[in-house]
Simulated assay, not measured.
Amino acid sequence: MLHPDYPLATERLLLRPATAADIDDMHAYKSRPDVCRYLPYDPMSRAEVAERISGVWSRTELTEAGQALNLCVEEAASGRLLGDVVLFWRDAENRTGEIGYVFAPEAAGRGYATEAAGALLALGFEGLALHRVTARLDARNDASCRVLERIGMRREALHLQDMWFKNEWSDTAIYAMLEYEWRESVEAGVRR
């Protein structure tokens, strides 16, 4: 089980549960076709964002496998909402999880996604004691692939045209990291 103390702080970011006050800022990027291009959903209406914030995105802890923890990513210095991240607890027996993230275009190129994704790895490995954390994404999403590589995840697989995605065949890239790799990076001072 995972019961984080919020907000989760990194060098420049705060990760915290979404609130109704986040609806407009979240809708501003989740409604954009360019942001949703590689995501498993289409651009969202304000009502859809509000519904998710009051529903599936309202979880503040993980009590059993199969659940997901969605968190807002806020710039600590300004309080500005930059994006949101998710940690899925996939399997308790095999201790597996998965991470994902989406950021507003204005936040791109500043290392925020890398910093937040690294915090998700810490939450998975340290908070849930996971053995393995993966990330699945459309292989054409080069920027997201670079984020995963910067946090030390390795590309394990490329599934060619394995999914009919938004009216075209898409390749899925699979990235992963094991617990011992995480621990080694912490001991080497790569992670805090």
Score class of each variant (00 low, 15 high):
A47T: 12
E48A: 15
V49L: 05
V49A: 03
V49E: 04
A50N: 08
A50F: 06
A50E: 13
R52D: 08
R52W: 04
R52T: 00
R52G: 01
I53S: 06
I53W: 04
S54R: 13
S54G: 14
S54I: 01
S54Q: 14
S54D: 13
G55C: 06
G55P: 09
V56G: 10
V56S: 15
W57Y: 10
W57K: 02
S58N: 12
R59F: 10
R59L: 13
R59M: 10
T60W: 05
E61D: 14
E61W: 08
L62M: 13
L62R: 08
A65V: 05
A65M: 10
A65E: 15
A65T: 11
G66Q: 08
Q67Y: 11
Q67L: 07
Q67T: 07
L69W: 04
L69D: 08
L69F: 05
L69S: 09
L69C: 09
N70T: 14
N70I: 11
N70A: 13
L71K: 00
L71C: 03
L71M: 11
C72A: 14
V73M: 02
V73A: 09
V73G: 03
V73D: 03
V73T: 12
E74Q: 13
E74L: 01
E75S: 00
E75D: 15
A76L: 02
A76N: 10
A77M: 00
S78R: 03
S78A: 11
S78G: 07
S78H: 04
G79D: 04
R80P: 08
R80C: 09
R80H: 13
R80G: 05
L81K: 01
L81T: 04
G83Q: 04
G83N: 06
G83F: 00
G83S: 07
D84L: 04
D84E: 15
V85P: 08
V85R: 02
V85S: 03
V86H: 02
L87Y: 06
L87M: 13
L87C: 07
L87W: 06
F88L: 11
F88E: 10
F88T: 11
W89C: 07
W89H: 12
W89L: 09
R90M: 11
R90G: 07
D91A: 08
D91S: 12
D91N: 15
D91V: 01
D91I: 02
A92E: 15
A92D: 14
A92V: 05
E93N: 11
E93K: 09
E93H: 14
N94Y: 13
N94G: 04
N94T: 06
R95T: 02
T96N: 14
T96E: 14
T96K: 13
G97F: 06
G97W: 06
